[in-house]
Amino acid sequence: MTDTQAKPRPRSSLPVWLPVLLGILVILALFAWFVLPRLRPYQFNGTVIQSEMPSTNFTLTSADGPVSLSDYRGRLVLLYFGYTFCPDVCPTTLADVNKALDQLGNKAEDVQLIMVSVDPARDTPEKLAEYVEFFNPTFVGVTGADEDVRRVATLYNVWYEAHDEEGASGYLVDHTATLNVIDEEGHLKLLIGYGTGADAIAADLDYMLR
């Protein structure tokens, strides 16, 4: 092999395979950018519950009369436990859910938020209705006798405890602040923790309503 006789290639002519290689690279990049993310399974922001056991039905009292979980079969139910004296955690969550429903557009009609009061002594059904409807007119608030509320909370692994405070609050109620998402067939499918944020809640609900 000797190249002493080879004339230097003119600078302007690039090897023919170069545009082909570039073309392939561009196609690969586009594939990686647009197609690969769609092939990955959806990653929930909440915690997925894979029990096939149907959620236990319950009936509590709203301002418009008795409300049962089974009334909302066929829709996604967001079951939340809170109280109207709660100034921080509950309003944050309810406002986040409202924002998430906004993002879902028409699909929001297939979602029902129910807030169960963990403070039945102070929260009347009327007070609860006014409270939850402030955040979204479709939200429903329910309460009941102490033991009935406690039973429902226990069914959904919700812990709550009132504690007296020296200040003006009288007492405060610490409570599990998780949104329980019950699917259209009545199975608990997802737990969304406090602070998940509206966008992440909307993404999970949107996927469940696909």
């Binding site: 709660c86 921080d88 955690v89 812990w159 709550y160 405890e161 504690h163 405070e165 020296e166 200040g167 405060l172 610490d174 409570h175 599990t176 602040a177 406090y194």
Partner: peptide, 8 residues
């Protein structure tokens, strides 16, 4: 307990 609590 993993619950949201509030206190002075």
């Amino acid at each position: 307990e993993g619950a949201m609590a509030m206190q002075p």
